[in-house]
Design a protein around this nucleic acid. Sequence first.
DNA 1: ATCCATATGTAATTCCAGCTTACATAAGAG
DNA 2: CTCTTATGTAAGCTGGAATTACATATGGAT
Lengths: 292, 292
Amino acid sequence: MDWLNLPPLATLRAFAAFAEKRNVVDAGVALNVSHAAISQQLRALEKHIGVALLDRSCKALTLTGEGEHLARALQLGFGAIAAAVSDLARSGQDRPVHVSLTSSFAASWLMPRLPGFRAAHPEVNLILDPTYEVVELRPGGVDVAIRYGAGGWPGVECEMLLQTPMVIVAAPKLLGGRKDWSPAELAQLPWLEEIGTTEASKWLSERGVGPKRGAGRTQLPGNLLLDGLRSGQGVTVTVRHFIEADIREGRIIELFVEPDTRGYHIVTPKSPLRPTVKTFTNWLKREVRTAK
Amino acid sequence: MDWLNLPPLATLRAFAAFAEKRNVVDAGVALNVSHAAISQQLRALEKHIGVALLDRSCKALTLTGEGEHLARALQLGFGAIAAAVSDLARSGQDRPVHVSLTSSFAASWLMPRLPGFRAAHPEVNLILDPTYEVVELRPGGVDVAIRYGAGGWPGVECEMLLQTPMVIVAAPKLLGGRKDWSPAELAQLPWLEEIGTTEASKWLSERGVGPKRGAGRTQLPGNLLLDGLRSGQGVTVTVRHFIEADIREGRIIELFVEPDTRGYHIVTPKSPLRPTVKTFTNWLKREVRTAK
DNA sequence: ATCCATATGTAATTCCAGCTTACATAAGAG
DNA sequence: CTCTTATGTAAGCTGGAATTACATATGGAT
């Protein structure tokens, strides 16, 4: 398209507004400018095109035939543009916020709090996508990921939501009353691992304990993992925050704690967030601050 | 239409250009701005709408689904506008130049020169409208008038084309060899007057000669007036320029000359002229300078 | 793995298109 | 004839748009 020969868009806008209102003062109000600005832009447009669009022979300005022709085209053109912009702004509101998160986080932290979000923001729909693998944040796809780790990942924005260490834990009945197990000893017990994660394997491996020598490992979704843990079905690695009450009350025994600064992060793309995504992430931050 | 919530038109234009070219440098070339200007406008547009229109996850910018949606609407919208503007500019070229002029001017001055205009500007059509009364210059109607007088008429632009005095003349045979006639004596002879004008009546009246006391007055079109003058059918008032050769060669006798500064003027409206109207008026001015 | 070309992004600064302000002009109603 | 209303004009101001200069990152070539 030949952009360079198009008149300045401001002149076309002024003319379109005048054509709608048929009065330079009203056209100015519509565009939030003075009537003088409209008058000048109308003159500039006629000069640019080299055609008289307006008839000034009476007190009130009227459109010539050519002016009516252009006015119709501008109404169609700007109308199509305005409709598309409005659709986009609205559809941005309507599309659910797509959240990728581990199911243990979902089950332990988010689900108990979700009624509060529903009550505060009934207009925001969510998709809670229990994914474990690295997901790519793309417009139209995943909007935000909640991930455990050190943060600072490249190509995305990371904001610490909940700092909490990893702990190695088991039910008392699985441990038979003992609390001072070595990693090698622990490796002889059955282990539970959240599907899609490698925390348990990694922990053992880092302590020189090879794979496949023990009472077996079971991988299962995060919400079932905690049930299995509480019922004594195996040793596991999990986020201390989720089981602090169990530990405090002796239902779960904390065997080891990982001394680091990792935590759950809100991970978003670098591009601007849709307003509803912001609503959700702001709620997350407030929730983590007000809840104990 | 809700103009105030529309994003700045410059941002929409930048986005439309990028959507066409798929490259910020090429989009800048298309709009004659730097790639940085495009980049900034794209950011501004996304921020305004609150929707990601562009995918920046790879080296090359690409459009998201929403971006494609908006791009189509902008192509339709700006395309319709550009087509209408182009049509107007072109149709302004195509419509004939409507010229209002007296038939004596047409016959004596313009028609002999018209082949030169035709040759130089075959693409410009003319309407030579033999009108005498004051015409209103309106878009779509009369584009330019050629009128004899002092100029300086209100509400229009006036430019002197040909300064020439009015003269009172007659054929030798009508005068019977005498050259020193008084106005009262001349009033007894037959008079010719160009239809729609009052020059002859006015001249006589200004010299105290009342109407209706003579050998009669005939009103006729300008081209026939000069034929009648040459054939001795009456005394008349006319523009000296048209009959200078006749006077020089004794075929017409100049009885009186009006000592004033009047002449033929190019009269145009104050609003901008279509290019073809300018072509015609510029030709008129050149023609009057080069011809003797 | 390194280097280089290419594409895009950013921020400080400049500049001029678009606007405001203040007044002028003219048409039309009463 | 006076007054209201509608539009026009010009001088001056300003902030949106653009430039400039450099930065960053991706991907291709070696």
